[in-house]
């Protein structure tokens, strides 16, 4: 299993960012749609495991399958492009502008949302026998999650909002490390292992992931969660997206770029020769 040198995989990340910005609208939307749908399905899978085993760790350990599937298939998550796209602009790649970055983010957001919503509707049908019975146990659990992670934050006011934002930051620090992980190795097994670790961490810690939430909350609403669409956006999705953006760009993108691409010259210790 070959491990790439940091300067190699960071250049690959910049290349990836460039191709995201320059990708056609059609491709961007399709890839984002499928990424949203796939990740949502994995979230449903993980919640089901948690309900059935009563052990949150089991769900967290297995949730990364969704992430691995969508990255191996070349789909794009908003959390990933938050990190990748700006790299190309910082590296002054021709044709890569902040306008292009915002366009990409906008399209990927729309695609992810549509994908997650599709899965949410299908899962809602699944949980309720086509809306003809009360939600199954998993459905009720999802409704509970929806209330806890909107109104639960709201009761703390601004502090609650800040908490979601910070959880969003922590989330994308880990998730985008998973994106980087997909590049550090040239083999499928290496990629999967490198992606698995940070995703598992974020899911167990219930950090706020904008796309997972695009599934959880619409499903929760359909399962009868006692909160409004406005609650969902203001007390969850908006701070989560912003937190994901800040966390991904600062902890992952900027850091890797400034140390592995804009490498500072080595410090020369007096009287010491650099060893081979």
């Amino acid at each position: 299993m070959s491990y790439l040198a940091p300067s190699e995989f960071v250049t690959k990340l910049v290349d990836a960012g460039e191709s995201k910005i320059l990708m056609s609208t059609k491709d961007t939307l399709i890839r984002a749609y499928m990424a949203g749908a796939t990740l949502a399905l994995a979230a449903a899978f993980a919640v089901t495991i948690n309900v059935q085993t009563g052990q949150p760790l089991a769900g967290a350990v297995l949730f990364p399958v969704g992430f691995c599937i969508l990255y191996l298939l070349g789909y794009d998550l908003l959390t990933g492009v938050f990190v990748l796209a700006p790299l190309a602009v910082w590296d002054k790649r021709p044709g890569c502008t902040w306008n292009g970055v915002l366009r990409n983010w906008g399209l990927v957001f729309v695609g992810n949302f549509a994908g997650a919503l599709t899965t949410a509707v299908m899962m809602a049908v699944y949980f309720t026998y086509g809306f003809s019975t009360d939600p199954s146990e998993v459905g009720q659990k999802l409704a509970g999650i929806g209330v806890a992670r909107t109104l639960g934050y709201e009761q703390y006011g601004a502090a609650g909002w800040l908490t979601i934002f910070v959880r969003g930051m922590l989330c994308n620090w880990m998730v985008s490390t998973g994106v980087v992980g997909a590049q550090v190795s040239t083999s499928v097994s290496g990629k999967v292992i490198a992606m698995w670790m940070p995703i598992m961490l974020f899911f167990y810690m219930t950090f706020e992931h904008s796309i997972v939430n695009m599934f959880l909350f619409p499903t929760a609403l359909m399962m009868g969660g006692a909160f409004t669409l406005g609650d969902y956006f203001w007390w969850n999705e908006v701070p989560t997206v912003l937190g994901n953006l800040v966390g991904g760009v600062t902890f992952t993108g900027l850091m890797l770029y400034s140390t592995h691409i804009r490498t500072s010259p080595k410090r020369q210790a007096a009287g010491l020769k650099v060893a081979a």
Partner: peptide, 24 residues
């Protein structure tokens, strides 16, 4: 991947000029 100061095939590496995903 080579390091500064390393001897390689009768050459001494002085410094890295370029490092990317395709070549060094």
């Amino acid at each position: 991947v080579l390091a500064e100061g390393q001897g390689f095939e009768g050459y001494t590496i002085l410094r890295q000029i370029h490092s990317g995903s395709r070549s060094h």
